[in-house]
Amino acid sequence: MEPDLDWSKNFPEFQEILNSRINPEWLYSAKANMVLNPAYTGEGKQLFFTKDIIEANKTIPFF
Rank of each mutant, 00 (worst) to 15 (best):
E55V: 08
A39V: 04
L27K: 10
L47Y: 13
S29T: 15
I17N: 00
K45Y: 10
G42S: 03
G44I: 08
E43F: 08
Y40P: 00
M34W: 09
N37F: 10
I17G: 00
E25H: 06
W26D: 01
D52P: 09
I22T: 06
E25V: 05
Q46I: 05
E16Y: 07
I53S: 05
N37C: 05
V35R: 11
G42V: 04
L47T: 04
P24N: 04
S29P: 00
L27N: 09
S20D: 07
A30G: 08
V35W: 15
K51H: 13
E43Q: 09
L27Q: 09
N37Q: 15
N33L: 15
S20R: 09
V35K: 14
D52N: 13
A30V: 14
A32L: 11
K31Y: 12
E16Q: 08
L36H: 12
N33V: 01
G44A: 04
T41F: 04
P24K: 07
P24R: 02
R21P: 00
Q46H: 08
N37Y: 06
Q46N: 02
A56Y: 12
A32P: 01
N37M: 12
D52V: 06
L47E: 02
D52I: 10
E16L: 09
I17T: 05
L27R: 07
L18M: 08
A39P: 01
I22D: 03
E25M: 05
K51V: 10
W26A: 00
E43P: 00
Y40Q: 09
Y28L: 09
A32D: 12
K45W: 03
A39W: 15
L36F: 13
A56M: 06
T41D: 05
E16R: 08
E16F: 01
N23L: 03
N19E: 14
K31N: 06
T50K: 14
F49V: 02
I53M: 15
F48G: 00
N57K: 13
V35A: 12
I54Q: 12
L18K: 08
P24D: 00
M34D: 13
K45C: 03
Y28V: 07
F49D: 08
E43I: 03
A56H: 11
N33T: 07
M34H: 14
Q46F: 00
I53K: 13
N19R: 13
T41I: 07
A56R: 12
P24V: 01
W26G: 00
E55S: 14
L18E: 01
P38A: 07
E43R: 04
M34P: 00
S20G: 04
S20C: 06
K45L: 06
Y28D: 11
D52F: 11
R21N: 12
T41Y: 05
N37W: 14
S20L: 07
Y40T: 02
I17W: 01
A32H: 12
S20M: 06
Y40H: 04
A32R: 15
L18Q: 05
N19K: 10
A30Q: 13
Y40F: 09
N23M: 07
